Simulated scan of single mutants.
Amino acid sequence: MVSLKAKRHPTELVDEVLHCIFFLGQINNPRYSPKDILSDDNMLNMLKSIYPQPFQLYSSQLPKRSPVSCVLDMIVDLTGQEKENAIIKQLQTLILQLKVDQATDLVSSTICVSQNTKIPTSVRYYGVSMSTSGSLPGRIVVAASCLSNWETYVAGAVMTYYPKKEKKTYFDGTIKLPAYVRCQALRLSDRGPMPPCRSCGNLFGLKTSEHKEWSYGNCAEVESLSNLLKSENEVREQARPTSDTYTEKNLKRARESVMKELTGLVKTVQFRWDGEFYTPQRD
């Protein structure tokens, strides 16, 4: 990330990825401090002087997403969103190198590309699967993403099933994407296409014959579609939830439920959360 930034990019993505990695080290068992993670003192001191905020707030604030999401944003920015193959190849190269280095705790296994195919030159929106290690960190970052980062409809769809993979009786925020929306996930190991899992079928109406139901919010489709709906108003309006239970009152109740779950999880990992979600510093 530091090397890529040297070419062209604002500070915030490096700042954000540092905070996220330090946070995940803080809730790991055993815990890892920034000094444990950045064992090179020169690198540690250099990063601490340029990006002081992650070192100050990793033990009190929650990240809004997982590390590889920040890396992907930087690759897309440097490469150009239209160069889909180059983006996927560059991320795959990084992931495979991390595996060679036996540094696979915080990597994503899949990438997803979404776009409005009604427009031949439409923007491509990318997302990766949750890059956390272990069940509790993943559940924490999914909840944090729902409450602070993902587009409202996408977050509502995830909250319909979060955290127990059981649909809430009082709230249905699931959506159905228009047929013209492309949403394609690929394995980062070999860039092979992956059909939507049952969870993504339930959340977004994606056609699938798969029966495997992964934890809701972990799939690359979630982040990719969140980015799409944040920018494409026509798609967003056509995909809006249609259930009678999708009301402001019930959405508020669902968010409160997720917040309660999140608060309990951070206590479980003995993290002293100040109630804030981390905002990286800008140039």
Rank of each mutant, 00 (worst) to 15 (best):
G134D: 08
Q90F: 03
P137R: 04
K230Q: 14
G134P: 12
M43H: 12
S66R: 05
K249A: 13
T152A: 09
L94C: 02
L44F: 15
Y246E: 13
K5W: 07
E221P: 12
Q26N: 14
S199F: 02
E276Q: 09
D172Y: 04
I87S: 11
Q53F: 00
D244Y: 09
D244V: 06
V235S: 15
L44E: 08
I87C: 06
N202T: 11
I95G: 11
T242N: 11
E151W: 04
T160P: 14
T279A: 13
N45E: 06
M259G: 12
P54V: 01
V269P: 13
V2A: 10
S224T: 05
T174F: 06
W273P: 12
L13Q: 14
T279R: 03
K212E: 15
K118L: 15
S60K: 03
T263P: 11
C183F: 02
Q53P: 08
G275M: 01
T110M: 07
L62Y: 00
H19G: 03
G25Y: 01
Q81S: 09
K230W: 08
S39L: 01
W150E: 06
K176P: 07
N116T: 07
V258W: 00
V76K: 10
K48E: 11
L229R: 01
D283F: 09
L47C: 01
R124F: 04
T160H: 12
V154F: 03
I87E: 09
N45S: 14
G264P: 06
G201Q: 07
P10N: 11
S145H: 04
D283W: 08
M46T: 09
S3R: 12
L186G: 03
R191Q: 14
K83M: 07
N250R: 06
Q53Y: 03
V141F: 10
K176D: 05
Y161H: 14
V76W: 04
E276W: 10
H9N: 13
P67R: 00
N227Y: 10
Q238I: 03
W214V: 04
Q270Y: 12
E276F: 04
S145M: 01
N29A: 12
T208V: 06
S39M: 05
S59Y: 09
I88Y: 08
Y278C: 00
V123Y: 05
E261T: 08
D41V: 06
R182Y: 01
N202G: 14
L265Q: 13
G205I: 02
E234V: 14
W150G: 11
Q81E: 13
V142E: 12
L38S: 05
C183P: 09
Q97A: 07
V222A: 15
T242D: 08
K83F: 08
L206D: 10
L62S: 00
V107D: 10
A239F: 12
I50M: 09
S215H: 10
L188A: 03
L24R: 05
T268C: 05
S145E: 07
Q97I: 01
L229Q: 04
A220M: 02
R272G: 05
C200K: 02
K176H: 07
L136T: 14
D15Y: 00
E234P: 15
S131P: 13
E12Q: 08
L96S: 12
Q184C: 11
G264R: 01
M194N: 05
G275P: 10
Q238V: 03
D40G: 07
K212N: 15
